[in-house]
């Protein structure tokens, strides 16, 4: 049995009268890729925002490597080794690639100056170009280029390489292949596999079921804030997963399949 890295127990979260999460539980093991599926508004983003410290949960427990933690800020999530690439936004377009890669974790000289400490620009630039090479972005990108000059796919690659560089235990990707071209999509999927091989755990949110079958070990399906099904990829098929997501009548489908 692989070691458990992250366990969520009965998470609940409401926005006013909207119950976005009702008793969601989930575990993630070392070197495992779990796909989180569900229709629009099912609560997937809400679940991962709760884990990554974007907002507090109303009720429920989070365990990291068996230890109970309370994640009250994005900084705390990062310090626990949870790196998230959000669906809506990850980068600051007016900053250079290098500055984005190290945003919030800037290498500095004269550390005692606190927020007034000068950035170690040489180190920033070096680390950035090494990293860009490692992710294998096809086009040569200048570490000093502004993110606003990049394509959507390039931006996604930058966000992913940032998560890579801090070698987090858990990497959460919220619809990372949205708006990506064929080549970039393969880049992202390759990245997910690499992460698994390196022993990291990945929680992948996607609407593309083909991708799920390509990279995931396990599937977790959400509907209206609840986790309604959990299956290993080896034990299921596309049709079943689709019906789980939409909530269509399983037995009717089964009968038709026979």
């Amino acid at each position: 049995m692989m070691q458990e890295v992250l366990r969520l127990q009965n998470l609940q979260k409401s926005f006013g009268s909207v119950r976005a999460l009702k008793n969601a539980s989930l575990t993630l093991s070392e070197g495992e890729v779990v796909a989180l599926l569900g229709d629009n508004g099912a609560g997937k983003s809400t679940l991962i925002k709760a884990i990554s410290g974007v907002f507090p949960i109303d009720r429920g427990d989070v365990y990291v490597r068996g230890e109970k933690v309370s994640i009250r800020s994005t900084r705390e999530a990062m310090d626990l080794g949870i790196e998230t690439i959000h669906q809506d936004t990850s980068l600051a377009p007016d900053l250079s690639i290098a500055r984005n890669l190290f945003l919030g974790r800037e290498p500095v000289n004269l550390k005692w100056l606190g927020v007034f400490a000068p950035l170690d620009l040489a180190k920033l630039r070096d680390a950035a170009s090494t990293l860009l090479k490692r992710v294998g972005i096809s086009k040569k990108l200048d570490a000093d280029a502004l993110v606003s000059t990049l394509s959507g796919g390039e931006r996604q690659s930058i966000a992913i390489s940032r998560a890579m560089q801090f070698a987090a235990k858990v990497i959460i990707l919220d619809e990372p292949t949205n708006n990506l071209g064929v080549e970039e999509t393969h880049g992202v999927l390759r990245f997910v596999k690499e992460m698994r091989e390196a022993g990291h755990s990945v929680l992948l949110i996607t609407h593309n079921i083909h991708h799920v079958f390509e990279v995931a070990d396990r599937i977790v399906v959400m509907r209206r804030g609840e986790i309604v099904a959990e299956q290993t990829v080896a034990d299921t098929d596309l049709l079943t997963v689709e019906s789980l997501i939409t909530g269509a009548d399983m037995s009717a489908l089964m009968k038709r399949a026979q």
Partner: peptide, 8 residues
């Protein structure tokens, strides 16, 4: 949001 997500 991006800044906050990086712990700023």
């Amino acid at each position: 949001n991006a800044a906050v997500a990086r712990g700023v």
